[in-house]
């Protein structure tokens, strides 16, 4: 294991900002794995740390393939993690909306450019990401529909689902999108949590990464062969919104099978405690995404359901 400094920035009042990379093996730039870009992505930090731990063990045993280099960047934004902010501390910009970056531009554009120049030539790019809506997912691999995506490769992680997302204009400045434009095979891995550690889905993600690296001939690792994923287009997910605001009491959680008319959640009056509204499932299927905050606004997306699918 070799430790590199990928990017350095001086700060007026804090220790230098440094992005670290851990290299395993040497030779062809085979896979790059990237952890949190936002300050609340603690689960993503944990998953990356465990991947580094496993790869270090495998390297000790001589289980990294000849002429293959794997780079893991466990954290892109520890400045925000350390002060409990989601975005860049001084101007609240999101590094993951700055790619491919600009080396003469604003601070987070420079960070993005410094990172992207170092990682753009890897054959496979894997990012542990979080979603812009608050909630939990079934662990899955997500790819942007750029015309360059290859869902059959995403299947090799052995996670239960692969989701293909049609990019919105604001997606065009993410790492995943730009990696694909640069001809890397880019995957975003989503687990069940963001700002807390969920051990079960974290270990599923670590196993998924090792499975992928093994199947692509980069490491030798004996693991469970995982799932044959269902590949779904994001727009196929049936969205359930609230028509009331108040206290949110979930009845169903992610990965539960539901029937049309089943109660998914209840919205309670915040002062008087009665049930203002029951949220019913509009379809048979499996809960893919579930809102997880105790309070909810009107018109919030609280569930996304994989329709007509059974466990």
């Amino acid at each position: 294991m070799k430790k590199d400094i990928i990017y350095t920035l001086k700060a007026p009042y804090r220790d230098d900002f440094q992005i670290h990379g851990y290299r395993f093996g040497k030779g062809e730039q085979a896979a790059c794995i990237i952890g949190p870009m936002r300050g609340n992505e603690v689960q993503q930090l944990y998953v990356c740390s465990q991947v580094i731990c496993k790869l270090a063990e495998l390297e000790e045993k001589g289980a990294i393939a000849h002429n293959k280099e794997i780079l893991v960047i466990p954290c892109v934004n520890h400045y925000s993690i350390n002060i409990g902010k989601r975005f860049w501390p001084s101007d609240n910009t999101d590094i993951n909306r700055m790619f491919p970056g600009y080396e003469y531009g604003e601070t987070t554009q420079r960070i993005a450019a410094g990172l992207f120049n170092r990682v753009k030539d890897y054959t496979y790019g894997i990012q542990f990401a979080s979603f812009y809506m608050q909630g939990e997912f079934i662990p899955h691999v997500r790819m942007m529909d750029t015309g360059h995506q290859n869902p059959s490769l995403a299947n090799l992680f052995g996670l239960p689902y692969v989701v293909i997302r049609k990019p919105e204009p604001y997606d065009t400045t993410t790492l995943n999108y730009n990696w694909q434009l640069w001809n890397a095979n880019a995957f975003s891995l989503y687990t069940a949590a963001t700002d807390r550690i969920d051990l079960e889905s974290a270990s599923q993600a670590v196993a998924g990464v090792l499975r992928f690296l093994t199947r692509m001939g980069m490491v030798k690792y004996q693991g469970h062969s995982g799932y044959i994923a269902s590949v779904i287009q994001e727009e196929e997910l049936v969205t359930v919104n609230t028509q009331e605001a108040g206290i949110f009491r979930a009845v169903k959680n992610t990965n539960e099978e539901v029937k049309v008319g089943d109660v998914l959640a209840e919205i309670l009056h915040p002062y008087e405690g009665y049930v203002k509204m029951q949220i019913l499932s509009p379809v048979d299927g499996i809960v893919f995404f579930a809102y997880n905050e105790p309070l909810v606004m009107e018109n919030t997306v609280i569930f996304k359901i994989l329709a007509k699918l059974h466990k």
Partner: peptide
């Protein structure tokens, strides 16, 4: 931005009637 929402409001137009509260 909009409190409790990640995206810049001026990056989500034309919005989505079935999307999040802000997109709505």
């Amino acid at each position: 931005g909009i409190p409790k929402f990640d995206l810049d409001m001026n990056r989500i137009f034309p919005g989505n009637e079935n999307g999040s509260m802000v997109e709505y």
